[in-house]
């Protein structure tokens, strides 16, 4: 995880490719983070969601 994070720093870029798709690792991490946050926001229970009477 640490190496993954540091790959987004000011180091030589790492590029991943599948056919016509090429993506820089830093960008991929950002996009995966967005998807993960979206998924977690949907499934995690919201504290105090019992509501006020």
């Amino acid at each position: 995880m640490n190496t993954l994070l540091l790959a987004m720093g000011d180091s030589p870029g790492i590029y991943l490719g599948w056919g016509v798709f090429t993506i820089q690792l830093g960008n991929l991490i950002i996009i995966l983070t967005m998807l993960a946050l979206f998924g977690l926001a949907l499934v995690l229970p919201f504290p105090g969601s019992g509501g006020r009477k």
Binding site: Q24, N27, I30
Partner: peptide, 25 residues
């Protein structure tokens, strides 16, 4: 060399490993 040209998805990329303008995907 820095993967910045148009046919390399370069529009999204920053120099080095830093994330770039991924919103231009």
């Amino acid at each position: 060399d820095q993967h910045l040209t148009g046919d390399q998805w370069g529009m999204m990329n920053e120099t080095g490993g830093t994330p770039g303008q991924s919103w231009l995907w």
